[in-house]
Nucleic acid binder design. Sequence first.
RNA 1: CGGGAAGUGGCGCAGCUUGGUUAGCGCGCAGCGUUCGGGACGCUGAGGUCGCGGGUUCGAAUCCCGCCUUCCCGACCA
Length: 470
Amino acid sequence: MVRAAVLTPRGQDFPRWYQDVVAKAELADNGPVRGTMVIRPYAYAIWERMQAELDRRIKAAGAQNAYFPLFIPESFLRREAEHVEGFSPELAVVTHGGGKELEEPVVVRPTSETVINSYFAKWIQSHRDLPLLVNQWANVVRWELRPRLFLRTSEFLWQEGHTAHASRAEARDYARRILNEVYEPFMVEVLALPVLTGRKTARERFAGAVNTLTCEAMMGDGKALQMGTSHELGQNFARAFDITFSDETGSQKHVWQTSWGVSTRMVGGLIMAHGDDAGLRLPPALAPIQVVVVLVRAEDGAAEAAAALRAELEAAGTRAALDDRVDMGFGRRSVEWELKGVPVRLEVGPRELAAGQVTLVRRDDGTKDPVVVTEAVRRVGVALDDAQGSLLEGARARREAATTDVGDADQALEAATGGFGRLAWAALGEEGEDRLAAKGVTVRCLHRRDGTVPETGDEPELVAVVARAY
RNA sequence: CGGGAAGUGGCGCAGCUUGGUUAGCGCGCAGCGUUCGGGACGCUGAGGUCGCGGGUUCGAAUCCCGCCUUCCCGACCA
């Protein structure tokens, strides 16, 4: 039996495939204003799972949640020179309110450094007030000229952390801690996405930061996606907003800061990294629905058995759903759950039930196995664990296979046509970086030979990973 | 923002070159029946100011102008 193609094949037209998945898995729609996005319930559930997992880790790193306003006085943005310069082109500016022209235009936040820091200046007096670790879950607006659902939209949802510390070393350590203890483990353990971590080059650095750290993942077409960033801001904003404290000796000092964020872009990354020709493939640790019990036919006690299985799975702590829509064709329902990437399907029908069995189908590798009903819950648990690992390994293997070690800029360009190129940063340099950029290839990050994050950008023997990026 | 392509029921498309009266097709949707272990089938039916605005014309989905939106390729960003 040949399956009809549900989606444009991934290898035939990747962008088209991506759009097909977003539409058919009911993830998102375009909003009425160019560049905006309607996040549909299933994708929002995925985002909520990301939020839950991240929020826990962020709090474990000591930050507390707060909320700052959407509207920011335009003058605030102008206080940090590089920051304005970086964001000016993509600002949405409100000029009218309450039926009249505003005296000072108000910008819709593209990020909240400026508002948050103006309050940090007020709240921080003493070294005893430090470190101040704040996180906010919010929407931000950056007017996009070339929008793409989840990956680049004019409005997106994210989490932005902002911290102030008493010393440069402490701020630097915290920026790194967020990268290595929050973002990277979340992406690896929950999203099953192997990420490269490292520093951004000066060219790729966040506007206003002295150092930007990044997590980079490879998508199914070999392009890179920046999954999250953590910035060391130095004292740039502290000076611009006059954030000072008296230290133990009573002298006034400017604070040292960080900011860090991940966004709904990760949903796009998840689709592009794990998806296949049948749709999304969700890692079990993330999936809003980990297992769906599909009632094949409501005969011979199958309906009762399916409902009971779902209840048992839930009792065992598994996120389970029941699909008892027997008036809809079985094949159609299978296709639907595959599109949505639900990791495991338990098919319950009278035929196998007569033998005391149900069928366990794994989304990650497509395997189907009969399992004894009384063993089903345990077997689902095993399958979920296994799928989590195999998705991660599969993504890692694809990345390795599509990564080439090269010696110079020309070879790097060649390598970046279908994956990552890796070469000595010393052999590329900023001139080489500019040459690549002219061809749409960027340095995604700099890291040590062993993949760890360097302390500074001028460590010897740094490796540059270059690629085309979303 | 530059360069290309395209907007016709929910989705995918035909019709446009050579204006002409009831705008078609497939999928989906609703009802009924037969089916039912990988997108079932039959019958009946609903659903469209042809992206928006202006113009030409006796008459515009079709020709002209402007705008909006989407997709692809480039420059900028999570």
